[in-house]
């Protein structure tokens, strides 16, 4: 079944987009300031976790609220809504001594990709 993209849809798409934010009171697993470890997610299916931060320790810096979880929604297994956070890593945590001592990396990470450090 194909939902045809029509001329009438275009002004709406351009003006509002396709919001992935979910307006549901889902509890957050983490709070700002928490130390977290990024999980070794190695599923062959769709996910949105960059490999270079797997297993690294970071600090939850912002809680952006609740969003659709791409791992399930991409496979039509439901939105599984959960919080997304900006997590801060020092460059040296991620790259060892190759990282500049004052530099930082910021990545946006879903609840299911992390555990408390």
């Amino acid at each position: 079944m194909i939902n045809k993209v029509t001329v009438e849809m275009m002004p709406i798409v351009l003006a509002t987009g396709d919001p992935a934010r979910v307006d549901e009171p889902i509890p957050a697993k983490f709070k700002e300031g928490d130390k977290v470890i990024v999980l070794e997610v190695n599923a062959p299916t769709h996910n949105r976790l960059p490999s270079y931060i797997k297993g690294k320790v970071g600090t939850v810096t912002f809680d952006h609220g609740v969003f659709v979880f791409p791992d399930t929604s991409a496979h039509r297994k439901g939105p599984k809504p959960q919080h997304v956070y900006t997590v801060t890593f020092t460059a040296q945590e991620v790259w060892g001594e190759a990282g500049h001592p004052s530099d930082r990396l910021y990545a946006d990470i879903w609840d299911d990709y992390m555990r408390h450090a």
Binding site: H64, F67, S102, R104, Y106, D108
Partner: peptide, 14 residues
């Protein structure tokens, strides 16, 4: 050298 570089990887919906 004394300026902090912050790299933002837009991995989610932000």
């Amino acid at each position: 050298d004394d300026v902090e570089v912050r790299v933002w990887d837009s991995t989610a919906e932000l």
